[in-house]
Amino acid sequence: MEAVGGGGTLSEVYQSAKKFLLRTRDGVERLERLQYSTSGGSDSDISFSVKKDINQIQSQCAEMDRLWRSIAAKSQRDLWKRKVEQVAEEAGSLRESLDKYFLRNQKRMQEAKERADLLGRANGDNAHVLRIFDEEAQAMLSVGNSARELASSTALGEAILSSLSGNRERLKSAQRKALDVLNTVGLSNSVLRLIERRNRVDQWIKYLGILLTVIIVLIIVWWRR
Score class of each variant (00 low, 15 high):
110 Q>T: 09
92 G>F: 07
211 L>W: 12
43 D>V: 06
120 G>K: 12
3 A>I: 00
70 S>A: 11
14 Y>K: 08
50 V>L: 06
125 D>N: 15
151 A>V: 06
31 L>E: 14
60 Q>D: 14
121 R>S: 12
167 N>H: 05
14 Y>E: 06
170 R>G: 11
82 R>M: 03
20 F>K: 06
35 Q>L: 08
35 Q>T: 01
184 T>D: 15
23 R>S: 14
187 L>Y: 09
90 E>I: 01
124 G>M: 07
12 E>F: 10
82 R>C: 01
168 R>V: 05
87 V>S: 01
4 V>L: 13
22 L>F: 13
42 S>Q: 10
169 E>H: 12
107 K>G: 02
169 E>L: 10
75 S>L: 02
75 S>N: 11
166 G>A: 08
103 L>E: 12
91 A>E: 07
221 V>A: 15
111 E>D: 14
107 K>N: 09
81 K>V: 00
53 D>S: 08
165 S>R: 09
128 H>A: 14
148 R>A: 13
5 G>Y: 09
158 E>Q: 15
62 A>R: 13
66 R>D: 15
30 R>P: 00
33 R>V: 05
225 R>Q: 08
38 T>D: 15
67 L>R: 00
24 T>V: 05
17 A>C: 04
212 L>T: 07
153 S>C: 11
201 V>K: 07
30 R>W: 11
215 I>D: 02
105 N>L: 07
12 E>H: 08
16 S>E: 08
189 N>Y: 11
16 S>G: 05
34 L>S: 10
184 T>Q: 14
9 T>M: 02
116 A>I: 09
216 I>C: 03
134 D>C: 02
165 S>F: 03
167 N>A: 02
118 L>I: 03
134 D>Y: 12
46 I>W: 04
86 Q>H: 08
73 A>I: 01
222 W>S: 04
179 L>F: 11
104 R>L: 09
127 A>T: 12
46 I>N: 03
209 G>W: 05
47 S>T: 03
178 A>P: 00
72 A>C: 00
9 T>Q: 05
148 R>V: 06
93 S>M: 00
169 E>C: 03
148 R>L: 11
135 E>S: 08
76 Q>M: 03
102 F>R: 10
194 L>Q: 12
108 R>E: 09
49 S>H: 11
110 Q>A: 13
108 R>H: 10
158 E>C: 07
43 D>E: 10
219 I>A: 08
157 G>H: 11
122 A>S: 13
118 L>C: 05
30 R>V: 02
112 A>W: 06
4 V>Y: 14
117 D>N: 14
175 Q>A: 01
171 L>K: 00
113 K>D: 09
51 K>M: 02
18 K>D: 10
64 M>Q: 09
61 C>L: 02
215 I>A: 04
175 Q>W: 05
85 E>A: 08
38 T>W: 13
112 A>I: 04
143 V>L: 03
225 R>L: 02
146 S>Y: 15
34 L>Y: 04
216 I>K: 02
185 V>F: 08
191 V>T: 11
136 E>P: 01
96 E>L: 05
3 A>P: 05
105 N>F: 06
110 Q>V: 02
77 R>V: 02
158 E>S: 13
206 K>R: 14
205 I>K: 14
219 I>D: 09
26 D>K: 13
50 V>F: 06
214 V>N: 07
23 R>E: 15
109 M>Y: 15
